[in-house]
Amino acid sequence: MLRTEVPDRAQTDPPSERPPKIEVSRLSFFYGRTQALHDISLTIRERQITALIGPSGCGKSTFLRTLNRMNDVIEGARAEGSVTMDGAEILSPTVDVVALRRRVGMVFQRANPFPMSIFDNVAYGPRIHGLAGGSDLEGLVEESLTRAALWEEVKDKLRESAFGLSGGQQQRLCIARLLAVGPEVVLMDEPCSALDPISTLRIEELMHELQRRYTIVIVTHNMQQAARVSQETGFFLSGELIEVGPSAKVFTEPVDKRTEDYITGRFG
């Protein structure tokens, strides 16, 4: 395999002792003159799930998109501060964004499969990066689909259009597609907001599996979901990170009054 196997430490280490994967320090973000993020500092630890919650427009998606520099696409967008992954700065203009995005994959709010076959969707990443060809590629596609818990459902129709799949299957296909390029971090931007409860459950089970190998950051509106799947939770409000800590603590005994108001449903 092309991926280096990592020891399955996630099961044994307590959350706070896992090594940091991404360190965000004093990050501010601007769309033109509008400031979307104010002075965010946050540590994302390896091989666990970090959930970001908060009302719409609070900046959590913007934050997520700075971690793989997807905001570069937007004109007039500008970040200040520092984000390091494995100790290396990723905000600097000299960073190879293409290489960064290979290491930091992203799942979007709405499943966005390419208008091609299921196989070609998964093979797209390995093909553009020249990772595998021929039977190696077929093996990689199968492995990625298996990891995304989709293989059994699609193995007989790999050559059919990805649009024939259900919404939940499409989302898992998008996850398989990104696993195929061998990322270290998986960013998920409200991956279940367009899915029914059963598909949502399947994605959550899948996240639980993926956490053994990958560092996951998920943005969600669904607080039960954040509580169910994540080890750490950060609460965003108006572009500020109000509170961050172990999920069990944030959801049961939040320190900040605003966090408490939000999770008890008093606003947002």
Binding site: M70, V98, R102, N112, F114, P115, I128
Partner: peptide
């Protein structure tokens, strides 16, 4: 749609590659 471009860019495809493999065929 922008979502298609972003999907390709997020996989680490360069801009020209995205245009050639995803945008133009669409």
């Amino acid at each position: 749609p922008r979502s298609l471009r972003e999907a390709s860019l997020a996989l680490g495809a360069s801009h020209w590659r995205t245009v050639l493999s995803i945008v133009l065929p669409a």
